[in-house]
Write a protein that binds this DNA or RNA. Sequence first.
DNA 1: CCTGGTTTGACATATCCATTGTCAATTTGC
DNA 2: GCAAATTGACAATGGATATGTCAAACCAGG
Lengths: 151, 151
Amino acid sequence: MATAEALDHVVRLVRDTFPRLQAAADRLHRHIGVTPAMRAVLEELLDGGPQTVPAIARSRSVSRQHIQSLADALAEAGLVHARPNPAHRRSPLLALSSRGRAVVAALRGAESPVLAELAAGFSADDIAATARTLSGLCAALDARRAAARRS
Amino acid sequence: MATAEALDHVVRLVRDTFPRLQAAADRLHRHIGVTPAMRAVLEELLDGGPQTVPAIARSRSVSRQHIQSLADALAEAGLVHARPNPAHRRSPLLALSSRGRAVVAALRGAESPVLAELAAGFSADDIAATARTLSGLCAALDARRAAARRS
DNA sequence: CCTGGTTTGACATATCCATTGTCAATTTGC
DNA sequence: GCAAATTGACAATGGATATGTCAAACCAGG
């Protein structure tokens, strides 16, 4: 079992790492004309198929209003389109357009050599342990948050 | 050596984890009256001793203007004070006030039981591997950024 | 059916993090 | 000393995200 101090260290590292990742990805996104948040929506649609705005918001634990504004921007840019939702007249399903698919592919393609270069510096075991830790941490934080919300 | 795919997974987890950590910390900070970014400055001063605004900005790789505005707010709140800098007349050293020290202590004290609870869910080895990975990742990203800036 | 609670879209407002740019004062390295 | 880098002060901007409100649509229980 880990100590609180060690976990604290990890928490701080996550906070340090995040803005660096954002900065590294930023030029790329700007160049292609999407923001990182928009990209996250595109990837959600790619991985999870067509979904409604509230469904995406729930899956990312953010407000539906925020996703709505991203979705509006993506629709205006022609990267997603709304298709009628048989299950709900007012809430259309968002689906990637072919341009949207191309944008995700372009982003991933541009990143993959960088990731490969960075990956060379790490052992597969450490990376696997990191993934375990972070996904566990996400789950634990979600559970706490749900508990807090109920009370 | 790790694969690009595995590292990509970790990158996405960092992006998922970060806002959850922010949200978890937020109520606490709001309650005490500092923002997470202000807290980071306070901790930098606690760990690194009195420093100038540009020094803090460099250590966190953010713009000095941003740190300046946080420092101004902290000074107004009485959590830090400027003391004359023997090495630079225009650029004072920021130091924690006793109230600032108390605020950091209060934040840490409030967090530590939560951290301990969360830490129980992880093995010490995984946490150590995670810390290694993230600090390596930060260093690699800093190096890339420095290289990009020079060119 | 119909009525009440829940979900949704649309719109407005606010907060925080962080950047970039500019100017004048200062410091520093040659 | 003088040119180049550093610094503080101010301004503008942008992005991620949260809340709050209202009206339309949906769903489930009588």
